[in-house]
Design a protein around this nucleic acid. Sequence first.
RNA 1: GCCCGCUUAGCUCAGUGGUAGAGCACUCGCUUCACACGCGAGGGGUCAGUAGUUCGAAUCUACUAGCGGGCACCA
Length: 896
Amino acid sequence: MDIPKTYDPKQAEQHHYARWEQQGYFAPEINQDPNAPAFSIVIPPPNVTGSLHMGHALQHTMMDVLTRYKRMCGYRTLWLPGMDHAGISTQLMVSRELKKEGLTRHDLGREKFVERVWKWKHESGGWITKQMRREGASVDWSRERFTMAESLSRVVREVFVRLYDDGLIYRGKRIVNWCPNDQTVLSDLEVQKDPQQGKLYYLQYPAKNSTARITVATTRPETMLGDTAVAVNPNDGRYRDLAGATLLLPLTGREIPVIADEFVDPEFGTGAVKVTPAHDPNDYDMGVRHDLPRIVVIDQHAKMTEDAGADFAGLDRYKARAKVVETFEELGLLEKVVDYEFSISKCERCKTVIEPLISTQWFCRMDQLRDLALELMARDKKPQFVPEVPYEKVYTNWLENLRDWTISRQLWWGHQIPAWYTKDGDVIVARSEAEARKKAGTDELTQDPDVLDTWFSSALWPFSTLGWPDETNDLKTFYPTSVLVTGRDIIFLWVSRMVMMGMKFPGREPFADVFITGTILDKHGQRMSKTKMNGVDPLEVFDKYGVDATRIMLASVGSTDVRWNEKQVESYRNFANKIWNAARFCLMNSEGASVDPAALKAGVSELALHDRWIISRLHKTARDVRNALAGYQFHEAVQTLYHFFWDDFCDWYIELTKADVIGEEPTLQRKAARSRLLTVLEQALRLLHPFMPYITEELWQRLPGADASLLHQAYKGAAPTIMLTDYPECATELIDERAEWEMQTVIDLISRVRNIRSEMNIKPGERVPVLVGAADERLRAVFAGNTDQIARIVRASEVSVSNQLSAPRASARAVLAGGAELAVPLEGLIDFDQERERLRREQDKLNAEASRLDAQLANPQFVKRAPAEKVNELRERLVDIAQRTAALAQTLEALQ
RNA sequence: GCCCGCUUAGCUCAGUGGUAGAGCACUCGCUUCACACGCGAGGGGUCAGUAGUUCGAAUCUACUAGCGGGCACCA
C-alpha cells in the first residue's frame, strides 16, 4: 500500500462528486425506507448572474453539513437547488452586452430582448451551479429550479390571481420610489439611506395681501416649483395669524394656502414647511389630508417638466436647483443657506438618487398577510430563529410596522403581470390570456407591460419548487421544509415574505427554523464587497487549502461575524493532513484486519483500558456532536470533532495501541487490535463526513471491510459510500466513566514524567527508570496494569509500582492525584537547588488553591446555600490537595 | 431618535453562575519507525470600566466608555 505522506486535496476532490451525483445519492429516492422521516432545505436561490462568494460558501457549508448529517441519520433528505432570475441585475447585464454591439434593448423590442436574455442564461448563466459542485454540496440536481421556468411562473400567476381576487393586490396611483437610472419603481426595501453633507436653503414666500413673508427651509429648492401649500403646526403661536392666509409662490405666481398640520415640527427649521405633494412622501400624505393639488414638476428622467415653467422645463433636477436658488437670491428672497447633514435615498443597485414620483403601480396589501406571520409567531413561535436574539425581535418589529409592497417593476425580464386591459380600460386579472379573454368576453386585450418584483417569485420558493398548487408527493413529503439557512440581510426581503405567502397559500409555515449565519468580514473588519474589491474568492481558498479545510473552517464560524483569517484555514488544512496520516498509519498496519463495527460493541468490558477508553470517548463525541447539530451549534460540533480526532484518537489512542498493532506475528490479538483501530478510525471518519466530505470518502474507500454492509439500512442496495453509512450514535452503556478516569490518571502520570524529562533536559533517546508509589489500591492497580504502555511512551528503562515510593535522593519527583508519587532517579544529573525550586513552585500553587478552598468552605453562607454536590466537590478537591502537599513536603525533606 | 450586538492571551475567536479555553504567534527540546501541514514541554489573561444582585459573577442587572449593526426620520 503506497500512500503519500501529504494529503493532496485536489486528487481527492476529483472523482467523488461526479460519482455521488451519478449514483443518485443526493436524491431522496435513494432512501428505501417507506417510513423514513423527511428532512428538507430549499437553497436561497443565488442570482443567475452571480458567482460564488464567501457568503455563499458559508451558507452552503452549513446547509450541506445538516443535509449530509440527516441523510446519514436515515432521513429522506432533500436539499433543493436553484436560481433566481434576478430581474434588474440580469436585464442590466444583457443590456451591457447589447451596448457593446451598439444596441439598446429598445432596438430589439421586448420579445427579442427576452429571447436574448434566455440565450444568455443558457450560455453563460448559472456559473454558480458548477462552483457548487466543487463545494461538495449534496443538492439534488434532478430537482433544480429556476424562478422564470414555466412551472414556477405558473405558480406566480396563480398566486397573483388569488391575491387579487382576495383584494390583497390592487393597482393604484401613489407616490413611489423611482430610480431615474434604472427607469423603474422600487420597493422601500430596495432603497438605501446614505448620510450626505448637504445644504439647507431658507426660502421666503411673500403673503398675497400683506408685506409679510413666511420662510421655509428645504434641502430641495427645485421642488418649490411644485409646491401647493405651506404647512405650519396648528399650535405654533408664531404663525397663528398666517394660518389660512394665501401666499404668492415666487417664480410661478401661483397662489398657495397656508395650512395647519400636526405633522409639522415647530422645533425644526422655521416651523413652516413647503408642501410638494407630487415629490415627497410626507408632503404627499399631507396633500391627501388637505386635498391639495399635485403638480408634477420632475419627470421620470429627473428632468423638470413643462409644469415647472418655461424657464425650467427640460433642466436636470440639480441644474434646476441651482437656478431656483440663484433666482431667489436675485429676488431677495433667499434668507440664508446653511450646511446640513441629512440622509438621502439611493437605489441600492446603482446608487442613483431616488426621485419620489406619483405613479400608477401594482401594490400588495400587507395587513392580512402580516397578521398571518405575527399570529404564527405568537401561537407557535415559528419560525424559530437561531440565534433567537436578536433576530426574532428584528423580524416581528419589522412586520408590525409593515407598509404596502410595491410589486410592479418597469422591466422586461421577469414575470409579466397577469393583468389585461380592455379598450374601455377595464382590468382583467387572469392566469392566462385565454382565461382573460373568456372573462372579458373579447379578444381585444392588452397585457400590462410591467413585471413583478423579483422577490415576489422568491417569496413563493419553498412551495413553488415543490409543485404547489398541485398536491404533489414532494409537497406532501417535504413541505414545510425543516430549516432555512441564510444571512441576516434578507430577513425582510425574503424570509418574512416566504412566511406570509406560505401561511396564505399552502397554509403552513414554510420552514420550522431559520438559522442566520454570521458574516465573513475582511481582515480589517469591513464587509466584503465587489466595489471595495476586498472579497476573498472561495475558489482560490479551495485551490490553496482544499475544499474540506475551507468547509470545516467555515462551519466553525457559526452565527457570529468574524474577520477572515487565512491562518485558520491553514490550521484546518493541517487537520486534514493529520486525518490523512492517522489513516495512513492505520492502513499501514491493517493486513489481515478489517472494519468491523461489532468489534466495538461485543465483549468491550474484556478489552484493555485504552480500548475501553477510546470507545467511551467515541460515544461521547457522537453524543456531543449530535446535540450540537440539533441546536445548530456548528462551532461546538467542530471543536468536539477536532479535539476527539487529534487529541484523543491521534495523540493517545494510536500511541497506546501501537504495541498491539505493530507486532510482526499475525496473532489473533494483533488482528483484533488492528480491526478495532480501523473501526474507530472508520467511525471518526463518519462523524467528520458532513464537514469534510472529500477526505473522508477518499479514505473510507481505502479501508479494508468498508463495503455495502456498513450502509444505513435505509440505503441497502446502494454502492458503498461513507455518505450513506449510519451517523454514529451514542450507546449509553458504552460510556465508561471508570475507564475515562483510569485513563486520565495514566495520562497524568505520563505527562508528569514528560515534564520532568523536558525540564531536566534528559536526552530524548536516554532511557530512565520511573518509580511510582501509590498507597491507594485502585490507583496502584491502574498503574501496574499499564507499566508497559507507560514505559514505551515515556521511554523508561523500567516502570516499577509499589505502595510506597522509595527512591534515591538524587531523583526528580512529582505528586499525582490521590497522593500518588513518582520519581525519576537522576544520579549525577540532578541539580538539587533547581529541583527543590521546581517542587516549591508546585507547592506554592497547591497552597494558593488550598487557601482559596479553605476560605470558601469556612464561609457558613457558602456551606449552607451552595448545592451539597458543589460543597462536596470542593471538599474532595481539598483532600486531594492535602495528600499532594503532604507528599511534596516529604519529598522536599528528603532532598534537604 | 428608537432597538440591538460586541469588548476574554500578541492576533482571530470559543465559553455564558461554581478552579479561565482553542488555533495561530512566542520560548525550549526533538530527522522518536503515521504525520515537521509533525511530536513533546513551557510562558502568557485582575475576561473594557464602575456599581449592584448572589454563599460565589467573565457569565445576571444597571450605568459608563469604545466599536459595530438594524429600523425610523426633520422639511
